Structures are given as structure tokens and as C-alpha cells.
Amino acid sequence: MTDTALVIGGTRFIGRHTVDELLAHDYEVAIFNRGNHEDPFAEDDRVTHVEGDRKDETALRAAKLSVEPDVVIDCVAYQPADVEAATEIFADVDGYVYISSGSSYAAEEIPKREGETPLEPCTDEQATDDSHETYGNRKAEGDRAVFAAAEEGVAAMAVRPCIVYGPHDYTERLDYWIDRVLTHDRLVIPGDGQNLWHRAYVEDVASALRIVAERGEPGAAYNVGDRRALTLRETVETIADAAGVEAEVVAASDDALAAGGLEPDDFTLYREYPHLLDTCALADLGWESTPIDESMARTVEEHRESDRDGSEWDPGREAEERVLGVMDTL
């Protein structure tokens, strides 16, 4: 008998790849969303479309009744109340999986481990906020809602990705670096290039969500990230290798960056303190990470076919040129 999966969200990035993952593993798939974004599955008769606002509990209950899902993947729960409502509505499914975040961790530890590294606190005010500043707090409180539901017998679990990249990434964070590599033979990276912000390939996140839904332990959280974590310098070099181009990476000190009116934080994917997640718990379920050369090759290929350039993250090429000029005199 074929299992049915309901994906809350399902059309943009992680959700889109999750639908593909579920279809590839012979699920009947339904997606529930407001229909505000282009639907890549609009012409795919394997996917059922249910329109509604996940904030509307009546609509969410109606989706459950019409789809009768065995598993639910919740891609768009951004406030704790979203998780509380979903775990109550889908209390009897075989697996409810909430997409949390590595941002839910409060302590700077290397690596960050499920059940050991403390989570961010969340005030009542933060719980109803929607700003970037409270994102980690809200995701952590969503985790706690999952844990509470599991204590009541709900098969609820959380998956915590770090920075997610790959085809169709609307955040365009990695697209900035890909575009720089493709358009300039010299590019600036901040510091010594050894800063590390763990990332997760989107197809691996999708497979993690399916595997946790099938095999995860209720009340557990699972980190997901590339098996091989790249420094920023290694990231740029791996992009260049995948693109088949030459790119000179110039690591610039704070003083050199200041010559261009720049700071390290002006560069996307820079993080002063290393962010690394332990993924052993997920691996114990049979999950595997895509080799980094393969994931980057697919990412670069899709970038070339898209119109994304990461320009919203651009610190300014003229500023970079000034920094390069300073570096050339050293």
C-alpha cells in the first residue's frame, strides 16, 4: 500500500526538493499552501494541490481530512504556535517532521550536538515576531513544541539544517559567490578565508526529512549538514572547480577591507565563530550526504540556467577593487 505525504509549503526551495524526494520514493504527495508562489508541480498529476493558509486551523484540518496523510513535512512553521497547532491536528499520523534550524542553538560550541548544546530561549514577544533577529528563538521554541507533543504520544520530530544551498535557492547567498567566480578572475574573501559556516545541500535536507519521517524517534531532533564542511576559501575554490574556471582568491585582513569601506560581515556566508553541526544521529538512521563535488556541480549548473546573481548580497565591486589594490601593494 502506498503511503501518502502532505507537505506544508512545497513549492519554493526545501519544500520543492522534498516533494521530488517523496515522489522518487513512491509516495502519493499533496502540497498545502496559499498559492502565492509559482508551482513547479502545477502540471504534475502525481501531486495533489490543496490551497489554504497554514495559519488557518480550519483549512489545515480540512487538508488533513481530504489528504489523509501518513506523514507530514512542515516546511513553513515559523512561529511556535504553528507547530503547536500542527502537532495537535496531525497527532495521529505516522510521522510529523518540523523543519527547525541550526540557528536554534544558543551556545557557540564545535560541533553543536542535539540534546547537548543549549537551545535559544524564547519570550512571548519573540514567539509572535517575524523578524530575522528572533528566527533562532522561534525555531527553538518550535523544537520544544515538538518535544512536548511527543511526550503526549505524537510521532513528532525536528530536523535542524544549517545554511541550505542548492538548485532553486531563492535566498541567493551562494549565488553571490558563484556569480563572482563566473564573472571575475580575482575576488576578495574576508579574513584568512578559514572561517567556517556549515552548509547543507538541499537534496540531502530533503532526504533527511523523508528518512526522519520514516525512521526517526518521536521527540528527537536531527542535525543535517554536509559531511565535509568547507571553509569560505574552500567553498570558492570548489565553485571554481565545478565551473571549470580559474579564480584567484584574495584573503583580505580587516585593515585591507577598511580601505574599501568594507567589513568582514559585509560578505555573505562569513561567520567569525565556526558553526558546525554534528550529524551522527541522522547518519545512524541511514542518511548519507552527497559528495561535495557533486552537490556543487549541480548547484553551479542550475545557477547558470537561472537569472539569480546574488546581487542583494553584493558589497560592491568598486569597493573590492580598492581592497585588491591595497593587497597588491603588500
Rank of each mutant, 00 (worst) to 15 (best):
Q79M: 15
V83I: 15
E68G: 05
L65E: 14
V67N: 04
A91N: 06
S66V: 09
Y78M: 05
A63M: 06
P69T: 04
F90I: 06
K64T: 14
V76A: 05
V71L: 08
V67M: 05
P69L: 06
K64L: 13
A85I: 11
V76M: 04
E68C: 03
P80A: 09
E68M: 13
V71S: 07
A85Q: 12
D70C: 03
T87Y: 07
D82V: 07
A77W: 02
L65W: 03
V76N: 00
D82Y: 05
P69D: 10
V76S: 01
C75H: 12
D70I: 07
V76D: 01
D92G: 01
K64G: 12
D70W: 01
K64M: 14
A85S: 13
P69C: 06
A81D: 15
E68K: 10
P80R: 02
A81K: 09
D82P: 01
E88P: 00
A77M: 07
P80F: 10
D82I: 06
A77Y: 02
I89E: 12
E68A: 14
R61E: 15
A62F: 09
I73E: 02
D92E: 13
D92H: 02
V72G: 04
F90G: 05
I73N: 01
A63Q: 03
E68D: 13
D92S: 09
K64A: 15
S66L: 10
D92F: 07
E68L: 10
V83D: 09
A63F: 03
P69H: 06
A86H: 08
A85W: 10
L65F: 01
P80K: 03
A62M: 12
P69V: 08
V76E: 01
A62H: 13
K64V: 14
A62S: 15
I89T: 13
T87R: 03
Q79R: 11
L65Y: 01
E84H: 12
D82H: 11
A77P: 01
A63N: 02
V83S: 09
A86G: 12
E84I: 15
A77K: 00
C75A: 14
T87A: 07
I89Q: 07
T87W: 09
A63W: 02
Q79I: 14
V67R: 03
E88R: 11
Y78T: 03
D70K: 01
V76L: 04
A91D: 12
P80Y: 07
L65I: 09
D82A: 08
P80G: 05
A62E: 15
A62D: 14
R61T: 13
V71R: 00
P80N: 09
D82E: 11
A77Q: 03
A81I: 15
A62K: 14
I73P: 03
A85N: 13
D92W: 06
V71Y: 10
Q79L: 09
K64P: 06
C75Y: 02
V76F: 04
A86F: 10
A77G: 08
A62Q: 13
V67C: 05
V67D: 01
V67K: 03
E84T: 15
D82Q: 05
A77S: 13
I73Q: 07
D74R: 04
T87M: 10
A85R: 08
Y78N: 03
F90N: 01
E84Q: 14
